[in-house]
């Protein structure tokens, strides 16, 4: 199996001399093609920092990151933009949809930017719209649809370019449980049926239980790893809760 993402000794330090804060310390990470990986950890553990660095939106202080066999740590700003556009798909907690565009236009935006032909655009749009069940709302504007619909729109935009890696930052954070389940089911389906590689940051154990493997981060370091294997989702979910208890459990230990 092909390695899509390879991060070595990634370090991120904020601040200047005298007042430094280490957000990430020597993180090693490897994700294979078709994997659905979750990243969990308490607030301030460095989850979002890690995701932003992998998303090339932020730069690591040191370390190497290779995505689809290209090293992203020494690319220029414009090459990075092109890289983000070609290889990555993003789903954000606050959707990041443009209010001035319809749902349809939001989804096809990356294709339009790449100057894809109109017929190709239509074909791909139909495919993702069907998959996420958003055909009826294609001509609506973001302010006219619900949070769940917005997130499915954002997810459609993320995968319409067939990205090598989909990065999701708390995608269910603002959704009710029904919408969250729908979205997670679709992501899981994407990974198992279409061989899409997904990396999802979440603090929600229920959301994480849909992934195949979970990395736990604490205080900027890799804490542990949990693999679903053949466990049922229910059992996996309980395992996750155990680890979370241990993660945030220091206070309890002292007592």
């Amino acid at each position: 199996m092909k390695t899509i993402l390879e991060a070595k000794r990634v370090k991120k330090i904020y601040g200047t001399r005298g007042n430094v804060f280490t957000a990430l310390e020597d993180i090693d990470l490897s994700v294979q093609e078709g994997e659905f990986v979750g990243i969990m950890g308490p607030s301030g553990a460095g989850k979002s920092t890690l995701l932003n660095i992998l998303a090339t939106i932020d730069e690591p202080t040191s370390g190497d990151i290779t995505i689809d066999s290209s090293n992203i740590t020494d690319m220029s700003e414009d090459t990075l933009a092109a890289f983000r556009h070609d290889k990555l798909g993003f789903i954000f907690q606050d959707y990041n949809l443009l209010d001035t565009l319809t749902v349809k236009e939001n989804i096809i935006l990356p294709l339009a930017l790449a100057k894809t032909s109109v017929t190709d655009i239509a074909q791909r749009l139909n495919a993702v719209a069907r998959r996420f069940g958003i055909e009826p709302i294609l001509d609506k504007y973001p302010y006219q649809i619900s949070g769940g619909q917005k997130q499915r729109t954002a997810a459609s935009r993320a995968i319409i370019t067939n990205p090598t890696l989909v990065l999701a930052d708390e995608p269910t954070g603002a959704l009710d449980s029904k919408s969250a389940t729908d979205l997670l089911e679709t992501l899981k389906d994407l990974s198992s049926n279409d061989n899409a590689t997904i990396l999802m940051v979440t603090h929600d154990a229920y959301a994480a239980s849909y992934s195949q493997r979970i990395l736990f981060i604490k205080d900027g370091k890799l804490f542990t790893e949990l693999i679903k294997g053949n466990k049922s989702r229910k059992k996996f979910f309980n395992k996750i809760l155990d680890i979370l208890a241990a993660l945030g459990g220091e206070a309890n230990d002292i007592i």
Binding site: D78, A81, R84, P110
Partner: peptide
């Protein structure tokens, strides 16, 4: 809006 565009890979 432009922040979003940069995030999804539109160059400066």
């Amino acid at each position: 809006n432009y922040e979003i565009l940069r995030n999804i890979g539109v160059s400066k």
